[in-house]
Amino acid sequence: MSDPIPMIRPHKGRGAASNPEGRFESTRHQAEDDGWYREDDEHRPETEVREELARSVITRNDSPDVAFEQATNPYRGCEHGCIYCFARPSHSYLNLSPGLDFETKLFAKTNLEEILRGELSKRNYVCKPINIGSNTDPYQPIEKKWRLTRAALALLNECNHPCTIVTKNALVERDLDILAPMAQRNLVQVFVSINSLDNKLAAKLEPRATAPHRRMKAVETLAQAGVPVGVLVAPIIPALNERDLEAIVEQAAARGAKAVGYTCVRLPHELKQLFREWLDLHYPERAAHIMSLIQQMNGGKDYDSNFATRMRGQGVFAEIIRKRVQVACRKAGLHRAWDVVLDTSCFVPPRVRSPQGELF
């Protein structure tokens, strides 16, 4: 038998280097060298977007360590390509790989606004803040064309429905004409995710997300427009990006952020393999040390799904991170947790569009 082709190599503009089968696949593929392989034959995977007609778009959450009860995601998969993304394993449910498929084979819920309108108009609907972008980034690059996040925001604005947004893309500034009026009515909070100030690291870690310095500028722009904005230092990866923690908090405060949150890296399911692969490609001299620290924060495993510890980790290193965030926030005058409660009292159910039009 010949040696396997050395397929594991970085792709420019992509986070994952390979496309391993998802955990639900019944078959496995093994590449073999037929003698024709050359190093310069690298194929750059292109982004494909498929339209999806969703049957429902509001998901409910009862996890005790998640701050919201309702969420909506305009897209499946994420072009940002963040190698650490905990949502990667969700692509396995589509019989696609959590690797390159997750960041190249994307799905746009083109009927999002229509279905969301119908769900909000139900008689038994109880208004609670909806998080936009709980699984994948609502302002990833394809939003520029598809504008599904903007459509959802416009609807929520129309019916006075509160929402929160999590993003790492400066494209959020585009929707200030909606966000600013919502903020005046206490209907929105935006969190910008910034986990490093090193552009070279960010280009490998989250290749198609907005550069860190530009995200900081977005924080400032939102704050100046009166939109409540916080910064998420997420995820913190020991011995890789945690050195920037204090500087991020300090700059966030200077740009007008009101709160800072953080999480430590999580590696569920197939993400363990993908992250180890990424470390071996980009930081081989530190790979073993980084994984050792991650395991120390997860009870000796690559990942511990315990609700009490999965977001922040456990053990000595996790406690050091917690104290560093605490001290940095105190020095910067920022809250560790958001203390503003969004207004749900003004919600007016939207009218479902009828093919017969409006009579009154």
Rank of each mutant, 00 (worst) to 15 (best):
M291V: 09
F191W: 11
Y125T: 10
R9H: 03
Q184W: 00
C85F: 04
R330M: 08
K258Q: 13
L176A: 01
A67Q: 05
G299K: 11
S193N: 04
Y37F: 14
P138V: 01
V57S: 00
V190N: 11
N186I: 09
T47F: 04
K272M: 01
G230N: 06
R243A: 10
N306M: 14
V340H: 13
V260C: 14
H161Y: 12
C329T: 05
P141N: 14
E42Y: 08
T167R: 07
L53Y: 04
R88S: 10
L245Q: 11
F24I: 06
A67W: 01
Y262A: 05
M182D: 10
P162M: 00
E173G: 05
S305K: 15
R324V: 05
P74C: 02
L171A: 09
T344F: 04
E119Y: 14
L112Y: 03
N111H: 02
G333Y: 13
G15M: 04
C329Q: 06
L155G: 02
P98M: 10
D304M: 03
N124T: 14
A170Q: 13
P238V: 11
E79S: 14
H43S: 08
A254D: 15
N73A: 07
L116V: 05
R336P: 06
D304Y: 04
E51R: 08
V327P: 02
G35K: 10
R60K: 09
A234N: 07
R123H: 15
Q295R: 15
N73H: 02
T263E: 14
C85Q: 07
S134D: 15
L153A: 01
L176K: 10
A287P: 03
R255S: 13
V265W: 11
A218D: 03
T136W: 07
L293P: 05
N73L: 01
E246G: 03
G300K: 08
Q251H: 08
L293V: 14
A17F: 00
A71K: 04
S193V: 08
K200W: 04
T72P: 01
I290C: 15
S97D: 12
K272W: 05
L148F: 02
Q273I: 06
N241Q: 00
R174F: 12
L359N: 12
I8W: 11
L267V: 13
R174A: 08
A202L: 07
R214A: 13
T59I: 00
A218Y: 01
G81R: 06
A234L: 04
C329Y: 05
P162G: 04
T72S: 09
K12M: 01
D62K: 09
P162Q: 02
V316M: 06
D302E: 10
T263W: 06
D40V: 15
I142P: 01
F317V: 08
E119A: 03
V249H: 10
L120P: 06
E270V: 06
D33F: 11
G99Y: 06
I178T: 10
Q224F: 02
G22N: 13
I5M: 09
R330V: 07
G230S: 12
R310A: 13
H282L: 10
K144G: 00
